[in-house]
Computed example of a mutant assay.
Amino acid sequence: MESKRVLFVSQEIHPYLPENTISSTTLALAKKTNDSGHQVRVFMPRFGVINERRHQLHEVIRLSGMNVVINDMDMPLIIKVASVPGARMQVYFIDNEEYFKRKFTYADADGKQFEDNDERTLFFSKGAIDTVEKLGWKPDVIHVHGWMSALVPMYLRLFQADNPIFKDAKIVFSAYDNGFDGTLGPKLKAGMEFDEIDPALCEGLDAPTCEDLQLLAAKYADVVILGEENTGHVEEFCKANNIPCIDGKNFPEDPAEAIKVYESLLVEEDVE
């Protein structure tokens, strides 16, 4: 198959964050896709725990001056970029002083989840989409990883269906067992409704759990991949809604299997 463009949107990527299933899977899939001759772009949040000097992050000046609207607030969007060690591949970091400067990821030193994780989720998902559009980079496949990226499929389907950059892209969502305890706050749903998403599509998101976000992402995906154990609820949802669902727990060791998924989606598109 000729070279295609694959966009990865993930909340964690190694080596910028500690190695775990989601961070190592995202890295393995992106590197293998890149090494296979496809074009790759990777996006993740610029959490404050990421050492900018060590990883040589620098701001993308030509993308400066962008804002993301969260509810009725214009929040500055800062884009930084770094090259993955040992790979000819770049990672773009979605940054904002208020949301990501703190020296933690999702919870404080006592393990308490940040109250604004609802807004941070909105900001990251919308910021990644806006940045890709600003770059003018048209992906063939968009692979979304984890709960903090879970709004990306919905926002693409509802707001970008006629956008030449995104309208032909196939969406893949990977679910993992790296969620959060409890629920996110009410500003997630409020922000979605401020963006004029039909309230009927936001039902059940007043205080969304990690499972709620995973099912929301799965609903708007072309294919769902189960990246870890304890994702049976996602599998059941996919079966009930006729959404293709694949066991991808071996993908970190055999990333070529993920590329087969991408290629199968694009072959189906060519046949259609």
Results as ranks from 00 to 15, higher is better:
residue 11 Q to W: 06
residue 12 E to D: 10
residue 15 P to V: 02
residue 15 P to A: 03
residue 16 Y to L: 06
residue 17 L to S: 00
residue 17 L to H: 00
residue 17 L to W: 02
residue 19 E to T: 04
residue 24 S to Y: 08
residue 24 S to K: 04
residue 27 L to C: 04
residue 28 A to W: 02
residue 33 T to C: 08
residue 38 H to C: 07
residue 39 Q to F: 14
residue 41 R to G: 03
residue 42 V to K: 03
residue 44 M to A: 08
residue 45 P to S: 07
residue 51 N to A: 13
residue 53 R to G: 05
residue 57 L to G: 10
residue 57 L to A: 09
residue 63 L to A: 01
residue 67 N to D: 14
residue 69 V to Y: 02
residue 74 D to S: 04
residue 74 D to W: 00
residue 78 I to A: 01
residue 79 I to Q: 02
residue 82 A to T: 14
residue 83 S to P: 06
residue 84 V to W: 12
residue 84 V to E: 14
residue 84 V to F: 13
residue 84 V to L: 13
residue 89 M to V: 08
residue 90 Q to A: 02
residue 90 Q to S: 06
residue 92 Y to T: 03
residue 92 Y to P: 01
residue 92 Y to V: 01
residue 93 F to R: 06
residue 93 F to G: 03
residue 94 I to G: 00
residue 95 D to V: 01
residue 96 N to H: 10
residue 96 N to L: 06
residue 98 E to L: 03
residue 102 R to D: 10
residue 105 T to G: 06
residue 108 D to E: 09
residue 114 F to I: 09
residue 114 F to P: 05
residue 114 F to K: 09
residue 117 N to Q: 14
residue 119 E to T: 05
residue 121 T to C: 15
residue 124 F to D: 15
residue 125 S to M: 13
residue 126 K to V: 15
residue 128 A to Q: 09
residue 132 V to W: 07
residue 135 L to Y: 13
residue 136 G to N: 15
residue 136 G to D: 15
residue 137 W to E: 13
residue 138 K to H: 15
residue 138 K to F: 11
residue 144 V to L: 14
residue 149 S to E: 04
residue 152 V to Y: 13
